[in-house]
Simulated assay, not measured.
Amino acid sequence: MDFSIFIHFNDLIPGLPTDLGLECLTRLPHSAHRVALRVCRQWHHLLQSDQFYIHRKKTGRTRRVTCLVQAHHDQPRHDKHTGSLPPSYGISLFDPQSMAWDRVEPVPEYPFGLPLFCQLASCDGSLVLMGGWDPASYEPLTAVFVYDFRTSEWRRGKDMPEKRSFFAIGSGRGRVYVAGGHDENKNALRSAWTYDPRRDEWAGVGPMGRERDECEGVVVGDEFWVVSGYGTERQGMFDGSVEVLDLGSGQWREVNGVWEEGRCPRSCVGVGKDGKLVNFRGLDPGLKVGVCGVAIGSRVVLSGSEYEEAAHGFYLVDMEEGQNRKLKSISVAEGFSGLVQSGCCFEI
């Protein structure tokens, strides 16, 4: 391993050569970085550097976790003046390797709860949060926030070019892709955009062939799949087709008959061993209501309940097992059993 790029970091750990000190710090779990940043100036600069991130990735020390938009409380909140309020949401982390739970710091502009129905995407070391409804006014938002795990800080990104709700989202080739959904007047959309979090820039993508409200985004290889959805005049009548964007050419194509017509795809679309789409809803008797699945390699973290107001269960399933796949129950830490609205896989 070439340690020359770290030559200006000396005596990282007193008494150890620089290369051994670096290897020790490389093995620190992410949960310890918040404390490690405060140990000394050298550690602070090292842990926040691009070189350290690249080194961890090359040596296989990064770790894939799920980032979940999750309710803080299991039961709805109540206000003495306005009555029942929806639960507030934050971002939870689940590490399927250590089976540990953690939280991401709140977005400074929303300290008491994220925008409702906001979307998450992971892109080149950054966690991107966008859209949703203001939790107080229910107004659709165009706000974009980017979280850097190296600094444990949020920054405000450039706003989305259009207001849209319940859109498809995915990431690939260093960009975040959004498509479909509906505008503030409930008109279903065909338009699509791409966001570059490093440059903080938006660029237009050619429109899809049809309107797709309440669609779901899935990235398969170098393609962004926009699954199902419905047009303005077909409220709730979910389509059985997908539109596929080639991330290289920027061209769309439509594929029919790959999703069950009439079934909502929101947060419950996966890709099986055979490359076909899988509906996580109904995969187990405990996965009928509020189902959300987040792929993490060949495995998927699933959550949902058997019926309305039932306790939410959390499971791991290996998609490589084909038709014989079995669900493994996940032990949930206290305070992490709330409803999951959406999520993504992130490589820390």
Score class of each variant (00 low, 15 high):
Asp2Val: 12
Phe3His: 13
Asn10Lys: 14
Pro14Trp: 12
Pro17Thr: 06
Cys24Tyr: 05
Thr26Met: 11
Leu28Gln: 03
Leu37Arg: 07
Val39Thr: 14
Cys40Ala: 05
Cys40Phe: 09
Arg41Gln: 04
His45Lys: 11
Leu47Asn: 12
Leu47Glu: 10
Gln48Phe: 02
Asp50Gly: 10
Gln51His: 02
His55Lys: 09
Lys57Cys: 10
Thr59Ile: 09
Arg63Asn: 14
Arg64Phe: 01
Val65Cys: 08
Gln70Phe: 03
Gln70Val: 07
Gln70Ser: 14
His73Gly: 11
Gln75Asn: 05
Arg77Ala: 06
His78Leu: 15
Leu85Gly: 01
Gly90Tyr: 00
Phe94Ala: 13
Gln97Thr: 07
Val104Trp: 01
Pro106Thr: 05
Pro106Glu: 06
Pro108Val: 11
Tyr110Asp: 14
Phe112Leu: 04
Phe117Arg: 08
Cys123Glu: 02
Asp124Asn: 15
Ser126Gln: 15
Leu127Ala: 06
Leu127Pro: 01
Gly131Phe: 01
Tyr138Glu: 15
Tyr138His: 15
Tyr138Ile: 11
Leu141Val: 09
Thr142Asp: 11
Phe145Pro: 08
Val146Gly: 00
Asp148Ile: 08
Phe149Met: 12
Arg150Pro: 07
Trp154His: 03
Lys163Trp: 05
Lys163Leu: 12
Arg164Thr: 14
Ser165Arg: 01
Phe166Ser: 05
Phe167Ala: 13
Ile169Thr: 04
Arg173Ser: 08
Arg175Cys: 06
Tyr177Cys: 11
Ala179Ser: 05
Ala179Phe: 00
Asp183Asn: 12
Asn185Glu: 14
Asn187Met: 09
Ser191His: 02
Trp193Ser: 10
Tyr195Cys: 04
Arg198Asp: 14
Arg199Ala: 12
Asp200Cys: 03
Glu201Trp: 12
Gly204Tyr: 07
Pro207Gly: 04
Gly209Trp: 03
Arg210Asp: 10
Asp213Thr: 10
Val219Glu: 10
Gly221Leu: 11
Phe224Met: 11
Val226Leu: 05
Gly229Tyr: 03
Gln235Ile: 09
Gly236His: 03
Asp246Ser: 08
Leu247His: 12
Gln251Ala: 02
Arg253Cys: 05
Gly257Lys: 02
Trp259Val: 09
Glu260Trp: 02
Glu260Gln: 07
Arg263Phe: 10
Pro265Met: 13
Cys268Pro: 00
Val269Pro: 08
Val271Leu: 04
Val271Tyr: 00
Val271Gly: 08
Lys276Cys: 12
Asn279Gln: 15
Gly282Ala: 08
Pro285Tyr: 05
Lys288Trp: 00
Val289His: 09
Gly290Ile: 03
Gly290His: 06
Ile296Ala: 11
Gly297Glu: 13
Val301His: 02
Glu308Gly: 07
Ala310Val: 12
Leu316Val: 11
Glu321Ala: 13
Gln323Cys: 07
Asn324Pro: 03
Leu327Trp: 02
Ile330Glu: 08
Ser331Lys: 11
Val332Thr: 09
Val332Tyr: 04
Gly335Phe: 02
Leu339Trp: 04
Leu339Gly: 07
Ser342Thr: 10
Cys345Leu: 05
Cys345Gly: 12
Glu347Trp: 00
